[in-house]
Every structure is written in structure tokens, then in C-alpha cells.
Amino acid sequence: MKEQKIKISGFGGQGVILSAYIIGKAASIYDKKNASMTQAYGPEARGGACSSQVVISPKEVDYPLVDNADVLIALSQEGYDKFISILKKDGILLYDSDLVENLKHSSKIKSNPIPATRVAEELGNKIVANVVMMGFFTAVAKMVSIEAMKQSIQESVPSKYTELNMRAFDKGYNYIKNLK
């Protein structure tokens, strides 16, 4: 396994940082790899541009930043516009197809749309949109095991929301199958 670099971008409050935390914890604690998660945000608590990043590696991570991403998860148009340029030429793009509409990347990029926010709303709470995306990411990118991701989510969300989050994860995970 090579080092894998994931960038997540969106607005503050969308769970951008929590998503990176879930991926990083799944890889590091449950998949027993090494993971380094860093974050960047503006001074606003809500609504400002926000991004996070995870580097997953079989060995100790030296360079913790992502300026050449294997995966970009875009939860907003602004996040897409800002970071599409750092995605590798053959990288994997995952985006919320209701929130990112203006696409401009080359066809070599593996483009994976999912209406994550709409799926979450259908589940009853749009706050789990990021977890829908996590499920989708797990299925598409295959960088972290599904067991590790599920455990990481369970450990990271309040217990009364575990069930909702698990359903959201499964929706996202199975979305790709349902497409076929």
C-alpha cells in the first residue's frame, strides 16, 4: 500500500473536520495503519470555508499535509473550486451532486456524484450528510475497511444518534451498488 492522501472541503458545520477524524481514526486505530489528520478553517464557527485532510500510510507519516490529493471529497461548490486543482490527474473525486453543480475537471478524474444531503434529508436529518458521504467514500475509494469505518463512527457520534448514523453510512455505502 502506498501513502494515500484525502482532502475534504465544504462549509463549517457540515462535519468536514469530523469526517476526516472518522477516516483517520478508522485507519489508525482500527485498521492499524498510520494516519495524520490536519485541519484548516476560517475564524467563523459556521458557514466559512473549511477543509480537512488525512494522510494514511503503512509507515509513519512524515509530511502531514495534502497538496497532491488521491481523493477529494467536495461538500460545497466553493470547496470544489478551491481544491480541484490539487487532485491528482487520475484521482478520485466524490461530491455532493446537489451542492456542486459547476464542474470543470478533466475526464481522467474518476468522478463520483452522490446527492448526500438529499439522501440524509430522506433519512430524516440532513446533519448526517457527511456520514452518507463517508459510506460512499468507503465503497468507492476502498482505502479504509468498512468495519473500521463503522466502529469509528460509532465511537465518534453521540450514542442516541448511532442508529441514524449507521443507516446513513449504509445508504452511502450501498449507493454505488444501487446505481448499477
Partner: peptide, 16 residues
């Protein structure tokens, strides 16, 4: 037995 959430490391973002 419940959730170990709080005493484990939290990220500074809200927990959805």
C-alpha cells in the same frame, strides 16, 4: 458499556 466518546479524543468540530 455505553459510549467512550467524551473521554476519547474529540475533534474540535461539532459532533453530528
Amino acid at each position: 458499556s455505553k459510549r467512550k466518546r467524551k473521554l476519547y479524543a474529540e475533534s474540535s468540530d461539532d459532533l453530528s
